[in-house]
Design a protein around this nucleic acid. Structure first.
Length: 949
RNA sequence: GGGCGCUUAGCUCAGUUGGAAGAGCGUCUGGUUUGCAACCAGAAGGCCGGGGGUUCAAAUCCCCCAGCGUCCA
């Protein structure tokens, strides 16, 4: 079954009729009975360029966006909707996406699943979003953006609970009224296209709102979920209705601005100051002034129109694309040469894309993101590098942080959610340094990669281009440019190479995704009811009474080594592993029977005590915790929170927990930061953390529902990861640190005693790992360090304070003495070989030295060097040693009678069987070894025979 | 989260099929020069990231670890 027609009173009342599009076959509503295209097809051109469809908005840029946003939000506010403040662009409340990609993303997954109440209902919002899928088209197409604001009105209906606000009829009514009354758009310009929507496991009817050939909004009526037995089929999947009915709308703020401005491209409507500034810096007017007859606005407007109706395939080659454009432009009466076209559109594509990228970048960094080489941080670095590349292509001499300052002032009103202006500029300064370092290294990479390539080659091997891109960060066009600078002046990028590389990456990603499926065995707990946790009510509970609900035998691969059964109790003070805190140990006593608890885990709401034996179900039991262990875990867990708060205050608001682990030995905290930490940083963090122990007398622990928690504390709560349920446990350490955390913590920070930040290391770029010891472990650590110092100073025989000095002296003396030994060894060799003696004879003008020596291959090498260096004394030297199974080494003096007459390798091969070995080398130097040192005499004798002695 | 690359003298980097550790810059000494720069001659400076393995033999091949870099999701 397909979806029924969307036949609404609002259409009929406003004179709309239903028609089917002859291009897309979709049904749509229009006021023009003769209209046969839906408005968003390859035959519907933008009609608003040069002829704005929204009147009364003379502003441009930020002022225009502010005005239109306010008009939209005010309209819905006046119509029962509550205005909601936008969420961050970093989707920290979600673990499936890095960036906020739509306004509905704010409410996924908990509100849309029905678990959590929406912050208001109905609500209206203008949500900044970032989508990087079309990043390559930004600047070129005239309309693509990586960052935009999605204005929306959302409704969350629950008919089964008697809550039903409005549905299609009222939704389209609101939309139509807003467009025609608030923005004064003529209803003849608007078409409403019926086009069902599905994605992410949900689906529903949807209406696309097309104005002047531009899709201004989409209204989605999400009331179905994917289900194999559903009776509705959409795009190959089956769906059934669900209890929630959600209205998900999306109105593109920037597109409204474009329709109101009627500029040739969307960028001139929303970033006019930056576009103007960059044009000036790049000397763009000088370019266009070469051709006074060229009507630039006309050209750009037609380009946008063409881009709007043409679906450019990703893999289309640059030259081919230019030819397509040139012929299409000619059809429209725009006469432009290929040279003019490139000279104009190439710099403009960069000028347009830079403010867009800066906007996304500033928003991401503004939310506290730290650039990195992985995860969300990589997206920021990619944008930063794109900006730098485009800047360099434009030959504009402005630093990245200057560009960002301009953007902050002009386009963001200096607003940043979290990061300071200073912090943002520091980060971008560091990013620019990294970029320059990469380019500098790139020159060497090019030289190495192109070693075997002739200077007049016209292409670089694919393999080299892949390596340079994937491993060294040199995009193919950068590699080509660098190669030309380095002397390979003829090289060009092969047609379609970029597309092939993208395909290759996609293929690799797909393969990686396939091998990612690894599901562990699920422990059966369905028959048990939830265990009541006692560890939250009283964190210092060391013993408790409860009842055994059941005992499940463990298979070999389940639980710790000596555990045989999982015991389930009605209630427990044993903390199950979670939130980076390890599970509790201890023992359970039932009458005469005592079993050890070797680990505690949680499946669903059931706590599993991994025990050394079984207990009788239905009878009472007493639990005893290994309190020393638990206290230490709590020390480390609470300390990790305190150190995290201290790091944020010392280093800046971008410090965010990227992971944590607490064991008995130590605590580990991964924090986001843009620089490596010095010992001075660690000392400052440690000092502040310890002062908190004294300054804060009590920690506050509260349990809130998600909606209230979000409102009270914001998304910094979710540093430990996005929690699953509606109920959130919040740990608050004065104003020092607030986090959602299910672990066990001290009521009084002072109970920890002391905290030491032992060291830090980099987990990945942009993430530093702090190693922390607290409480008893801190003392233990100090004792261990003392012992190391004591043992070391005993060896050196100096007080521990003199250790560094002593170690340095010993090390340099050791180096000097090694040098001396080498010199003495060389001297010995000289003495042994200079005198002639019985080991040395002469055969037809060539000195023959055959002798047994002491030493390994390295020593023998030195001796041979000494023997065969002098060209005035042509020498054949055969040395043998009993070292390590027997070694043989043969050398002849280069370029002399000796090397003409004797081949070291053949001589070696003919004698090495005596020591049961092999060997090889060059004709002038051969070496080998064997496993029979006793055969050395035979081998040397054979050598003598071989040369005729 | 997955993949790839790099780590060799103080610095920037070469090092081919495993077989004698290199270049340029810098440093030091001497020469040349009124002096500087430049030039000439010579010298010092290396746990070839760490650990294991294969091999007669490893900077080089294999495995593990660490650090740095990079691409993709």
């Amino acid at each position: 079954m397909a979806l029924p027609p969307i036949d609404l009173a609002v259409f009929h009342e406003n004179g709309y009729v239903r028609r089917q599009c002859r291009v897309t076959s979709l049904w749509f509503w229009t006021t023009d009975p003769k209209r046969d295209t839906c408005g968003d097809t390859s035959e519907d051109e933008y009609s608003f360029i040069g002829a704005p469809l929204i009147a009364g908005y003379e502003q441009r840029g930020k002022a225009l966006k502010d005005a239109m946003r306010e008009a939209f939000l005010s309209f819905f506010e006046a119509s029962t909707h509550t205005r909601i403040q936008p969420y961050p662009v970093l989707a920290r409340w979600r673990d499936d996406i890095h960036l906020t990609i739509a306004s509905i993303a704010d409410f996924q997954p908990h509100v849309t699943s029905g678990d959590v109440r929406p912050p208001a209902n109905p609500l209206t919002i203008s949500q900044p979003c970032i989508r990087l899928t079309d990043v390559d088209a930004v600047g070129r197409s005239g309309r693509h953006l990586t960052t935009f604001e999605m204005m929306a009105h959302h409704v969350f209906n629950r008919a089964d609970e008697g809550e039903f606000l409005y549905w299609m009829e009222e939704c389209v009514q609101y939309c139509h009224e807003m467009l025609t009354v608030t923005f004064g758009i003529d209803s003849g310009e608007i078409t409403y296209v019926e086009n069902p929507w599905c994605g992410g496991g949900n689906a529903g009817a949807a209406v696309e709102v097309i104005v002047g050939g531009l899709e201004l909004a989409t209204l989605v009526f999400m009331d179905m979920e994917e289900h194999p037995e559903g009776d509705v089929e959409l795009k190959g999947d089956r769906y059934r209705t669900m209890p929630l009915q959600i209205i998900d709308t999306g109105y593109g703020l920037e597109r409204f601005c474009w329709a109101a401005a009627g500029t040739p491209t969307i960028y001139e409507a929303i970033y006019p100051e930056t576009v103007g500034w960059l044009k000036e810096l790049a000397g763009f007017d000088d370019v266009t002034q070469q051709w006074p007859s060229l009507d630039l606005d006309r050209l750009l407007g037609e380009m946008s129109r063409l881009n709007g109706i043409m679906n450019i395939e990703a893999g289309v080659d640059g030259d081919e694309l230019v030819q397509i454009f040139l012929s299409r432009l000619a059809e429209r009466g725009v006469e432009v040469s290929a040279e003019q076209f490139s000279a104009v559109t190439e710099p403009l594509a960069n000028i347009y894309a830079i403010p867009d990228h800066l906007h996304a970048l500033c928003n991401m960094l503004g939310d506290g993101l730290v650039p990195s080489n992985a995860k969300a941080g990589y997206l920021a670095r990619m944008l930063a590098r794109r900006v730098l590349r485009m800047r360099d292509e434009l030959s504009v001499d402005v630093s990245l942080s200057d560009l960002a300052e301009h953007h902050l002032d002009v386009n963001l009103g200096n607003h940043l959610n979290k990061q300071t202006r200073e912090g943002l500029l520091t980060i971008l300064g560091l990013e620019e340094e990294r970029y320059e370092e990469m380019l500098r290294k790139g020159k060497n990479v090019i030289a190495t990669q192109l070693k075997g390539v002739k200077k007049d080659a016209t292409s670089i091997p694919d393999k080299s281009l892949f390596t340079m891109n994937d491993s060294h960060g040199l995009a193919p066009d950068m590699a080509i440019a660098l190669a030309r600078d380095a002397g390979w002046t003829e090289v060009q990028l092969r047609t379609g190479f970029s597309a092939e590389m993208a395909e290759r990456h996609a293929k690799l990603a797909k393969e990686a995704a396939k091998t990612d499926v690894d599901q562990g065995s699920v422990f059966p707990v369905e028959e048990f009811k939830a265990t009541q946790p006692l560890y939250y009510d009283d964190v210092s509970m060391k013993a408790f009474d409860s009842e055994v609900l059941g005992t499940v035998p463990l298979s070999k691969d389940q639980g710790p080594k000596d555990a045989s059964h999982a015991v389930i109790l009605a209630s427990s003070a044993f903390y199950p592993e979670g939130g980076g805190q390890e599970g509790d140990y201890g023992h359970l006593v039932q009458g005469e029977n005592t079993v050890h608890v070797l680990d505690t885990q949680k499946v669903g709401n059931v706590i599993l005590h991994m025990c050394s034996g079984a207990l009788v179900a239905g009878q009472s039991v007493t639990g005893h915790l290994d309190w020393k262990r638990r206290k230490q875990l709590m020390d480390h867990h609470t300390a990790v929170h305190i150190v995290g708060g201290a790091a944020r205050r010392i280093l800046g608001p971008h410090v965010y927990q990227a992971g944590a682990n607490k064991s008995v030995e130590s605590g580990r905290l991964d924090i986001t930061h843009f620089n490596r930490l010095s010992r001075a940083d660690l000392d400052a963090i440690e000092a502040l953390a310890n002062s908190v122990l004294g300054d804060v007398s009590r920690t506050e622990k509260t349990e809130l529902n998600r909606k209230d928690a979000d409102e009270l504390h914001g998304f910094d709560l979710y540093q430990g990861g996005a929690p699953k349920g509606n109920s959130i446990r919040v740990l608050k350490i004065a104003d020092h640190d607030i986090q959602a955390c299910g672990g066990t913590h001290h009521d009084e920070p002072g109970q920890i005693g002391s905290i030491r930040v032992v060291r830090s290391n980099a987990v990945q770029d942009g993430v530093e790992r702090l190693h922390i010891v607290a409480g008893e472990a801190a003392l233990h650590y100090a004792r261990e360090q003392d012992e190391l110092l004591r043992a070391s100073s005993e060896i050196f025989g100096v007080p521990s304070g003199d250790l560094p000095k002593a170690a340095e002296r010993f090390f340099s003396e050791w180096k000097e003495q090694r040098k001396t030994i080498e010199q003495l060894e060389a001297e010995i060799v000289r003495l042994r070989t200079s005198g002639g003696g019985s080991d040395s004879t002469e055969v037809d003008g060539v000195r023959i030295v055959i002798m047994e020596v002491d030493g390994d291959l390295k020593t023998m090498t030195k001796m041979l060097k000494e023997l065969t260096l002098d060209k005035n004394l042509p020498t054949l030297a055969v040395l043998g040693s009993r070292d390590g199974g027997g070694k043989l080494m043969i050398a002849v003096t280069d370029d002399t009678e000796a090397s003409e007459r004797y081949n070291a390798v053949t001589l070696l091969r003919s004698i090495s069987h005596h020591i049961k070995g092999g060997g090889g080398g060059r004709p002038t130097l051969a070496q080998g070894g064997g496993s029979n040192p006793d055969g050395l005499d035979d081998a040397l004798a054979a050598a003598k025979a071989e040369v005729g002695l």
